[in-house]
Nucleic acid binder design. Structure first.
Lengths: 415, 415
DNA sequence: CAGTATTTTTTCGAGGCTCGAAAAAATAGA
DNA sequence: TCTATTTTTTCGAGCCTCGAAAAAATACTG
């Protein structure tokens, strides 16, 4: 059950609130923070004075070059980039990408590597991840002790506690406790996140007007993934990572899905499904392991050029996505959708059938008003989301530590 | 955005926490409350002394007849039944039921009435509701001023703010702002709730071990409804009432649903759909307006006796429910399910096909471990849920009023 | 039956936190 | 230079929770 509020929690929570307000707004003045948090000026003054003293925030004199107003000018508060750093690790098909990010959110170092993730042994895969993190941490240009948190993202299913990858399409191996492995290796708190969830976090940061409290990020790539934000919070299901939109059932006893079952949305809308359908192969045909982005783009071009099996394949994908979204909207009500990934570049081919299908569903009653955004490149989004995830942890758990939140590792990571 | 915690909120929240602990536990001692809330004994002592002074709680000497332990015996704290009262109004097909409930949750008065809801005019329907409430309020045995809240429940779609019924299968009329109507008429705060959501609340109260943080209540009656609790909170979608499980798509272009669309789960599993299928009518046949409970029981008996169209109808219902649940579980992960309503009594006929279907889905990976409870009688559950809903409001908004929570009406309703 | 052990509840002072009001600081216009 | 205006800090008041100790209420013990 929810627990009572202890007296010492008060300051902790309000500290976290102030830090969050600064991270959101960029360079807010104390007065603006007071307005958004609803706390009094005196409280904001006291807390921000503490935070500046601890090197977490810093004052930045020139809030706006031409301050037109009379009176004492506002002085902006910003995050001190040197207060801490975090690291992001994004593991995707045949690709490993790491970045070190300062407390203000700027990339200060990065490294990328091609791997053959589908054929690597388990140990090699883990070893590569550990090695690339170690190289970044031991970079002489970087103060190792200042890295306060590592966030890994991977396509696939992670456990609720964000400790392990349970299953992923990019490797045949299962149940790899990446978070624990990195924590043990480097003594830095780490989490294992789902790639689509990170996309959702990044979308909210990029466009908080459109993606605020309720929205959906759908990854249209080899598989179909979803990141779902409901009532302002990432929705991750009750047990595992949840949100497996791609494996909602579109057609009972339908097309063969990569997951081995039949009729999933992904079995019609994943790259391999579009490929299979465009090649006029049977719906029972075993999904291919990978379709290159170039091949998919060629497929989309062919579909735009002439009415043929390629166009029909995209139509079927749109239909599956439309009915799936319709069912989803029946449950959660319509919300803005972002389509991300290589097939989002072919959304013009998908959209008509999608809208037609969604209009057939209870959730799509106002299908005209449902709007779709597209973003073909998922990797930058995933990294951005990871960075935000890790930084938010530092904000809340390290720089606003409370009785229950303080971990053994927390202290030493503070710069 | 979330707002800072003001100093005066502290006491308010902890008061609410203590009241909630008492409502949950029944007769907890101060020591037990301190343990469950995590607050200190001194704080609990101070708050409970206040609450007793205000007549909200009362001490009940004999906690347990034979207190085996040494030391000063615990003295139980209970809700003072006279602190307030609430009223529940349940409007279902051809039936209107009202109850007055004391602060401790006991029914102290009730009245029920048969109506012809499908043919009544809008004004008559509203008038009947207002009249029955007025009769209970003006009952000389009852102190009118002590009714602090009214909760209405109806089958159908309500708006997010719990003010109005937008659509309901029990009446042709739409957009009736029941909550506002009753508030204006009697000056008592009222809310308009969805029946399945109230079922879920009642289930949690009845069996908090099974129905705790995540569970699903499904109403198997003429239509298919759902109440969904996620992470301990009722899930009501982002805009309207949401949770329209019955209108997730089972078969694109499939059977005709009462909602006018095709292939909804309800078009296979609602009473009218089972009836239509058992009578071997076309899936395009217009849904009948009502099937009596007796007819449904006869159908179930026939299905149990021989393998024929009746049994096949239940099988199809099970399949639709199974695929629907599979898709739902793909999104939210598996959770305990309660099947409520007249067709829950025929769950033995539904379950095999349901389990077979769910095992075909990603969400049903562990379908063996998913457990179903059945409860044929929905009305008592709905009323119980309404009562809890209304009482919780009194607990939190009236007896633990804060700066933002205090309403103009709050004060005068305190007994 | 008095004394001791044990458990629950209350009391009391200390320490923190937020708030409002007032003061101080910093600037633009007159 | 003075005044108006706006932002930020300071300071005392008022609450709240907490820990420790005291008080209360009972069971055991010889």
């Amino acid at each position: 059950m929810s627990v009572g509020i202890r007296h010492d929690d008060l300051r902790r929570r309000n500290r976290a609130m102030v830090i969050a307000a600064v991270r959101r707004a960029g360079q807010p003045s104390r007065t603006e923070i007071a307005a958004t948090t609803g706390l009094s000026h005196s409280t904001i003054s006291a807390i921000s004075s503490d935070l500046i003293g601890e090197g977490i925030l810093s004052e930045s004199k020139p809030s706006e070059a031409g301050s037109l107003k009379r009176g004492r000018p506002q002085v902006g508060l910003g995050l001190n980039p040197e207060a801490a750093a975090v690291m992001t690790v994004v593991l995707s098909l045949n690709f490993l990408s790491v970045a070190v990010i300062d407390y203000a959110g700027q990339v200060i170092a990065e490294e990328q590597r091609r791997l053959d993730t589908l054929t690597m042994s388990r140990d090699t895969l883990v070893g590569e991840c550990v090695a690339i993190v170690r190289r970044r941490l031991e970079d002489p240009d970087l103060d190792v002790r200042s890295v306060a948190r590592i966030a890994l993202a991977i396509q696939g299913i992670t456990d609720t506690r964000a400790r392990a990858m349970l299953w992923s399409p990019i490797t045949p191996h299962t149940d790899i406790a990446f978070a624990d492995i990195l924590e043990d290796e480097f003594g830095i708190p780490a989490t294992m996140e789902n790639d689509c969830n990170m996309m959702a976090i990044a979308l909210r940061r990029r466009d908080p007007d459109r993606y605020r409290d309720d929205f959906i990020a759908i990854l249209l790539s080899h598989g179909i993934g979803m990141g779902l934000v409901l009532k302002g919070e990432l929705f991750t299901g009750t047990h595992s990572s949840g949100g497996e939109f791609g494996h909602m059932i579109h057609q009972p006893h339908g097309a063969l899905c990569r997951c081995g079952r039949r009729g999933c949305v992904e079995a019609y809308a994943g790259n391999y499904a579009i490929w299979r359908s465009a090649r006029q192969m049977s719906e029972d045909a075993k999904p291919v392991a990978d379709v290159s982005d170039a091949d998919m783009r060629a497929l989309a071009s062919a579909a735009r050029e002439r009415d043929g099996p390629e166009r029909e394949a995209y139509r079927k994908a749109g239909e599956a996505l439309g009915y799936g979204l319709g069912s989803l909207f029946a449950l959660i009500d319509p919300a803005p959708v972002a389509m991300v990934g290589v097939s989002a570049a072919a959304f013009d081919l998908i959209e008509p059938a999608l809208r037609e299908a969604i209009a057939q569903t209870a959730g799509g009653q106002h299908s005209k008003s449902i709007s779709f955004d597209t973003e073909p490149n998922e990797l930058p989004l995933i990294r951005e989301g990871c960075a935000m995830r890790a930084l938010t942890f530092v904000d809340q758990e390290i720089f606003a530590p409370g009785t229950q939140a303080r971990s053994g590792l927390g202290g030493k990571n503070v710069a």
